[in-house]
Each structure stands twice: as C-alpha cells, then as structure tokens.
Nucleic acid binder design. Structure first.
Lengths: 197, 197
DNA sequence: GACTATAGTGTCACCAGGTGACACATAGGC
DNA sequence: GCCTATGTGTCACCTGGTGACACTATAGTC
C-alpha cells in the first residue's frame, strides 16, 4: 500500500472541495455559485477544481453516488432461478441500508431536487447505471429474460427507489426508508415475461 | 383569430430551425454542432436562435415533446373510482397512439440516446411532468391516494414508457409500440395503497 | 542526503452556451 | 399615414470547460 499518501491527500482535497461546494450551494444556490467561488474558497484555481471534478455538477454527487458498481455485481450473483423482481428487491434493500441517512444526504437531495441541472445530471447517471443492471439481469445463466422485460424490471425498480427518495425528502428525513422500500416493492410488482404463454 | 399571421410565421421559423438543427446534429453530432452553425444555416444570428429556443437542447425536443399537458388533464378527468393504474394505462395508451411513429421520431430518439446532455435534459423535463401527473392523481376528488403511492404509480408508468421507447429504438422501429405498451402495463402492476389494510 | 521522474499547480488563451442592452426595421391596428 | 409592438442584428459580457506551458514539490532510487 505504498500508493497511500498521494492518493490519500488527493481524496482529502476532493472531499474538502465537495464540502466547501455543498456549503456554498446551500447558502447561495447552485446557479449563483461560480466554480471560481468554490475554488477560491478552497484555496485553489478554477483550473485546479476541474482537475478534481469533471464538471461543476459532479461535485454534488460525490457523496450520494448512485453508481453502485456493487449492485450490478450482486444482481449477477443472485441465483438464476430466483424471480428477477425478487432479486432486485433483495439487492436494493441491502444496498439502501448501507447508505446511512444523514442530515448531509438529506440536504444534498434537497439541493438536487431544487436544481434542474442537477436533476438532469442525476438521471443521466442513473440511465447509464440502469443499462448495466439491465444487462446484468439478462446475463444470468439459464435465464430466458428478453431485453424488454429486463428494462421493465430495472426501470420499475428505480421507479420505486425514486419514490422512496422523494417521500423521504418530503418528510424531512422522518420516514423510514426501509419500510418505504418494502412497501414499494410489494405495491409494485413486475412479472417475469409472459412470452411463452 | 387575428393573432394568426404573426404567430404562424413564428411557428414556421421555429419548425424550420428545428429541422435544420436536427439535420446538422444527425450529420456531425450534437456536440460538434455549434449554435452559430445552426443559426447561420437557417439564415439568422446566434442571438436570434435563442429567441426561439431557450437552449440548444430544446430544439431537439420540439417534435418529441413529452410534456403532454393533455395527459395531465385527462388523468384528472378520469372517474375517481377507477383504479389509478388503469387510469394511467388508459390515458397513456391514447396519448401514445397520437404520436405517429415516423422515421423522424426514431432518428431523434436515437440522437437523444447517443447524447448524454440530451438524456439529461429529457429526464429533467420528464421529472417536472411526473410531478404534475402525480398531483393530478392525488387531486381527483374522493380519492384516498397518498403522495407516496401517487409517486409510485407515476414513476412506474414512466418506467413502462421508457422501456417501450427503448425497445422500439432497439428494433429500429419495427416493434409494435401499442402491443409493447399493453404488455408492459400488464407485466408491471401497481396496487392502490395498502395503508388501510 | 542529493537526484530525477512525476503529480499537482498557476497562468494564460481560448471556445461555446447564454443573457442583457441598445438601436433599427418591419409589419399590424387604428 | 401614424403609432406601437415585435423581431432582428450587433456588441459586450459572464460562466463552464479545455489545452498548453512552465514551475514546484514530492516519492522513490542510489
């Protein structure tokens, strides 16, 4: 683990940059905060900011990343005979429980919700992620899921996730996310494909 | 109808601008086409382009607009005792059939799919639209739907819509959109809220 | 402990998407 | 024919983002 120091400082700078940025966004809004503002507040140049984050939007998603590389892997690892909807339920339940519901996360979600540009970026990321999940669902051995059904399943799963998130924000973080997720996955149900019928 | 002429020319210019833009995007890609390019190709200034479209992205959505003000109204007009999932099914079926599946629409969807910025913008618009649909669902008189369930319903409905759209593009427009929609709304099912149980 | 490759930084120049302000023309309503 | 909207070009400007270059500090090597 020799590569520690350099990477550690890098991550530390990233984290502080994100913290400073979120703070400024919360106070004066996303659009009224320039990258220069953030950079100067963190003691660096605009140019250097972009060496840590590809875009101004991405600094927001540093903590609340929904990429979930692990989710993709977990889906693929589920038994092939399991109902795919149950697989999604199982994996996403586990995944959600790992995200501790801090005040910070709540504030970030609120910020995203209030900023069109961030909403767009979030869904853009999620779209890429969904395609990977969808592929993972189809990729399980000995499964006869067609692409359309796989999309249906993943889209529906994120539909639940979104509703949970909205409700959680709506209740100022008082709602029980796990309970909401359970309820959602029961209220919404997606059948395996009915092709052969 | 005195306001005709002025508005008609305006819409005509808009339409031509959109056509020119789509053409350029198709040939050289969205990112490699500047607003100046579009404007000059349509015989006007960059500044004037922005008097017709708020952003470069929006010119793409001129034809494929998913805003559907009509959908919101139709939802609200459905009988309150109808199962909300069936209401969505009914309204969206009618809505989709109005969009004739032209080659142009297909090309546009492909363009969107291939351009991250457009994906973001699309979902951004759709998010706003969903909130309005969700409100409409809750707004029906004498209905006991809570906000969470309403979100669940609308999110799931757009999940179906997205899957249909993806599959349609995937099959180069050969798939039967109506049939996919029917299948989707049957495979996915969202129950009324189970609160009182 | 000095030495060199390399990561990180500032500076500068530049491009593209957008916006505000102003002056000018053109077309509509009277 | 006059007055007033409305549309247009021009110009100046801001912000997000990128490429190039020179400089500095550090990590690993001897």
């Amino acid at each position: 683990m020799k590569e520690g120091l350099r990477e550690r400082t890098r991550r530390a700078v990233r984290a502080e940059l994100a913290e400073v940025a979120i703070g400024l966004f919360a106070r004066q809004g996303f659009d009224d905060t320039t990258v220069e503002d953030i950079a100067r507040a963190a003691g660096m140049t605009k140019r250097s900011f972009f060496r840590y984050f590809p875009t101004k939007e991405d600094v927001v998603f540093d903590g609340v990343d929904l990429t979930g590389e692990k989710v993709v892997a977990d889906i693929a690892a589920r038994p092939a005979e399991e109902d795919p909807w149950d697989s999604l339920h199982h994996v996403l339940r586990a995944w959600q429980e790992e995200i501790h519901a801090s005040e910070q996360v709540l504030a970030t979600l609120r910020l995203i919700e209030a900023t069109p540009a961030l909403v767009g970026r979030l869904h853009q990321r999620r779209t890429e992620w969904r395609r990977r999940v969808s592929d993972a669902l189809q990729g399980r051995l000995g499964v006869d899921i067609d692409a359309y059904t796989a999309d249906l399943l993943t889209n529906a799963a994120t539909a639940v996730l979104d509703a949970v998130s909205s409700q959680w924000v709506r209740t100022n973080g008082h709602a029980n996310r796990s309970a909401l997720l359970e309820q959602g996955f029961i209220q919404v149900h997606v059948n395996r494909n009915l092709r052969q019928a």
